[in-house]
Amino acid sequence: MKKKVVLLSDSEIVSLGMSAIIGNMPDFVLVERTSSLELAQSAVIHNRAEMLIVEPHIIDYSTRNAVRGVLHNIPSTIGYSLVALMTHYVDRSVLKQFDGYIELSDGAEQIEDVLRQCISGDKPKDLAEPVVGTNAYAMNEDLSEREIEVLVAVAKGLQNKEIAETLNISVHTVMSHRKNIIAKTGIKSIAGLTVYALMNGLIEESAIK
């Protein structure tokens, strides 16, 4: 039986991306996605979900010293894994209260591994290590103008052939630029690159398909 997951995110882009990724997982099913803390708790209770994925910044900062305490509506009889979705910087003292965390630069396989390890009770990553959140998306000055153009096109949802036609270059050149972008930013997923483009003012949210 698939493990039921509830997603708490205030970003439509991130929410849709995570929904698509989880939707392709054989062992997990997303039963609810919401931007409301109250609705997320209700969804965990109603569905008896085994996992709650949450963007930590949604939780009021003054109460972050007891993350599960904020989720007081969920009875202790419901055992669930709490996973942080890293879209903003999160202090290590806060992150340690989660069973694991996902970064937007993680690929689908990495995300699935994190979820499986959390369900099994294992920490998917060493939470004692320094954690990188929003700072991971600081603009890389080494990106060339052409690489930035390709990055923006990727964020807009264009395929390699469409990018090639738009920029009047070959598909092979597009693929080469994309490899360079990944190498320079350290971000492999399209969702992560989209967030990178948004955070650095390279694209407006309205331009994303």
Rank of each mutant, 00 (worst) to 15 (best):
L85D: 00
L85K: 01
V90H: 00
D91S: 06
R92D: 00
S93D: 04
V94H: 01
L95T: 04
K96F: 10
D99Y: 08
Y101E: 05
L104D: 00
S105N: 11
G107T: 07
G107F: 06
A108V: 13
A108F: 09
E109W: 10
E109N: 13
E112P: 09
E112T: 14
E112I: 14
V114Q: 00
Q117D: 02
C118F: 03
S120D: 12
G121S: 02
K123V: 08
K123T: 06
K123M: 10
K123G: 04
E129D: 01
A136P: 01
Y137H: 01
A138W: 03
A138I: 03
M139G: 12
N140E: 12
S144P: 00
S144N: 07
E145R: 13
R146Q: 15
R146S: 12
R146K: 15
E147V: 11
I148W: 00
V150I: 14
V150W: 10
V150T: 09
V152C: 14
V152R: 14
V152F: 11
A153C: 05
V154S: 02
V154L: 06
K156G: 11
K156E: 10
G157H: 14
G157I: 13
L158H: 11
Q159N: 14
N160S: 13
K161L: 10
E162T: 12
A164E: 01
E165A: 10
